[in-house]
Design a protein around this nucleic acid. Structure first.
Length: 348
DNA sequence: CGACGGGACGC
DNA sequence: CGACGGGACGC
């Protein structure tokens, strides 16, 4: 770090020399970091950045320790608590210490976790968003089989086949993280829709949703079913804020001349969402108008970016109508939304 | 300028 | 079991 700062300052002062030195220094920095910089995964939720640093300081001089946290969940001042994402980076001064940290701390059990300590790959955007979600796998397929199937497309960082908690049997769903996004793209291109030998079903290979997306929908569906109380404080707060009413779903009127309604409620079409729109924003916008059954942001299969529209299903006609009336023309970010009852499929 | 979904997302 | 990519011209 210190070296890099010096390097940068030097470049600012001496622009003419930039091209001559840049590559060489950059290479040197990467080599340097590659032997001292560690990534630490599966940290307990409660561990702070200071605790991370002091844990690794027991091995040697730590140049920097960084705990990765979620983005300061945007807009609302009452959510100023940022959450550990459960991993971090520790850069040692000395390469020997980094090596010793791997051998002594990798596999260490902390609370209910077993941490993983390994060299961090050189930072680059090529390694971001390289996590794939695979479904439709034969239940007999092992993790090794899975890796054998995917390894020809690139270097696999980690993989996991999900199993049913009760039976311990494969759910036919897995994750694979590649070293590079391009490798993951390659695997999607070649393996999505492919039927493994001995199977009758084609598999689906796509980029995994980011965890907060996934958790959001889980959380919301739990709220809807009114079952779980094990999630934390902010959820209760949101439940109130959204005026979410799970009870009203089971007994609702079904009448209707509008194509937007169905047995599960009134479906609303939202157009002109930004590409980073997520389910949470739909809950936030529609929740205050009444019982929301379901929200869905439609995303591009490969990129996971919002395709510009989504759906919200609300239980009660009056509340849905009020939401449409209030939110149609609403400015979200730099876009003006169009909100209406969903039309039937074939109709444009 | 654009416009109406749909299995599964971390044992 | 379980969230693998931050931050950096600097007090």
């Amino acid at each position: 770090m210190a070296l890099r700062r010096g390097h940068i300052r030097y470049l600012k002062v001496c622009e003419v020399q930039r091209e001559l030195y840049d590559n060489g220094y950059e290479q040197m920095m990467e080599d340097d970091d590659a032997r001292t910089n560690l990534i630490v995964n599966y940290l307990p939720q409660s561990m702070s950045q200071d605790e991370l640093r002091s844990l690794f300081s027991s091995v040697g001089d730590v140049e920097s320790a960084k705990l990765i946290r979620d983005k300061v969940a945007g807009n609302s001042p009452q959510y100023y608590c940022s959450h550990s994402l459960g991993y971090g980076f520790v850069n040692f001064v000395n390469p020997n210490d980094a090596e010793r940290a791997i051998s002594t701390l990798n596999g260490l059990r902390l609370q209910s976790k077993t941490i993983k300590v390994s060299f961090a790959r050189p930072s680059s955007d090529m390694i971001k968003d390289a996590n794939l979600y695979i479904s439709g796998l034969p239940r007999t397929l092992s993790q090794q089989d899975l890796e054998d199937m995917f390894s020809r497309y690139g270097n696999i960082i980690n993989s996991r086949v999900l199993v049913d908690q009760a039976s311990g049997l494969s759910r036919g769903v897995a994750f694979i993280r590649f070293d590079k996004r391009s490798e993951a793209e390659d695997a999607v291109k070649h393996l999505n829709g492919h039927t493994p030998p001995g199977s009758s079903e084609p598999i689906t290979v796509k980029f995994a949703a980011n965890p907060n997306q996934a958790r959001n929908s889980q959380m919301m569906s739990q709220m809807y079913h009114g079952q779980s109380r094990r999630f934390g404080g902010p959820v209760h707060h949101q439940a109130q804020r959204f005026r979410f009413s799970p009870m009203s779903v089971d007994h609702m009127g079904s009448g209707g001349g509008v194509s937007g309604n169905s047995s599960s409620g009134w479906c609303i079409f939202i157009y002109n969402l930004g590409q980073d729109a997520d389910e949470a924003i739909l809950w936030q916008m529609f929740g205050p108008f009444g019982a929301v059954v379901n929200v869905k942001v439609i995303r591009d299969f490969n990129t996971n970016k919002c395709k510009g529209f989504g759906f919200v299903t609300m239980t009660n006609y009056e509340e849905a109508a009020m939401a449409i009336h209030s939110l149609n023309g609403y400015r979200l970010g730099d876009k003006v939304l169009q909100v209406s009852f969903k039309t039937s499929k074939g109709h444009k």
